[in-house]
């Protein structure tokens, strides 16, 4: 880990469901992320990885445990106070931009709320930083492709110059070639601005590509934490992690199926 802890999560527990029989979505999750580090949470749908991220973002009203961001304890109320420290990029580029707001509006609004000066200049720079020209400034979301929308979402997340970016499956809705462009953009931005990332994904390769360290989440718990180098070296120990690794190799005919049917 590099530098002091930018994010510290200890014993995070989130429960959903009716008051009578609450079902835990996340149970006793703890991890730390250093300043300038990229940390990945890998797991399948329903594992609780996104819930952890949303708790960090302040988008979940009730949780137990401790979350500290940049040394400051997050309680369940101070969503606004952290706007200039931490921002988030959502999974679905079609749902994260307001359908009736132009790109210009989406980028101007946070600047107006926080009283920034030189707004027009900042908006133009934010767009060029994510690889979009000035021609995109006054477009509506329906005039953008999925990849362009995700670039706008990244520009919006970065316009308040936060130090932490939470990334919720930022490329899973995109085509492979567009994913490559967005992943490159994210690594460039991280290097240029010394950002801290928390990336949630179901794709081990994406996480290993972006992050230095990662945790494997299943059934609301972290079962294994390791560096990306360890993962690449095949040092994963937990059976669940090995299963995820196995599935990456594509389809392999199960022994039982061929034996049972007598095919071939």
């Amino acid at each position: 880990m590099t530098g002091a802890a930018m994010i510290e999560v200890r014993d995070l527990t989130v429960t959903f469901g009716p008051r009578g029989k609450p079902t835990p979505a996340v149970e006793g999750v703890s991890f730390q992320v250093g300043a300038g580090e990229a940390f990945g949470l890998v797991g399948e749908s329903g594992s609780g990885k996104t819930t952890v991220l949303r708790a960090l973002a302040g988008l979940i009203p009730a949780w137990r445990g401790r979350i500290a961001i940049a040394g400051q304890d997050r309680n369940t109320r101070n969503v606004n106070g952290l706007a200039r420290t931490l921002q988030m990029v959502f999974q679905d580029p079609y749902g994260s931009l307001h359908p009736r707001h132009t790109v210009d509006w989406a980028l101007m609004e946070p600047l107006a709320i926080h009283g920034f000066d030189g707004t027009a200049r900042r908006v133009a720079r934010a767009l060029s930083d994510v690889g979009l020209g000035p021609a995109f400034r006054f477009r509506y979301p329906h005039q953008l492709s999925g990849g362009q929308r995700q670039r706008v979402a990244i520009a919006r997340a970065l316009i308040l110059e936060p130090r932490i970016l939470l990334l919720d499956e930022p490329t899973s809705a995109l085509d492979v070639s567009v994913q490559a462009e967005i992943l490159n953009l994210l690594s460039d931005l991280k290097r240029a601005r010394g950002l801290t990332y928390v990336l949630v994904s179901h794709d081990l390769a994406v996480v290993a590509h972006v992050c230095e360290r990662l945790a494997v989440v299943t059934e609301g718990r972290i079962v294994e934490e390791m560096t990306a180098a360890q993962l690449r070296a095949g040092e994963a120990r937990h059976p669940y992690t090995r299963q995820l690794l196995e599935s990456r190799r594509g389809y392999s005919r199960p022994a039982t199926a061929s034996a049972g049917t007598g095919a071939d």
């Binding site: 606004n80 988030m88 959502f90 679905d92 749902g95 609004e109 946070p110 709320i113």
Partner: peptide, 17 residues
């Protein structure tokens, strides 16, 4: 519950806004 509402809240927009 849309993501763009969550995004607006995270960017510091008040509820009335």
């Amino acid at each position: 519950g849309a993501d763009f509402i969550a995004a607006a809240r995270m960017l510091g927009a008040s509820r009335m806004r």
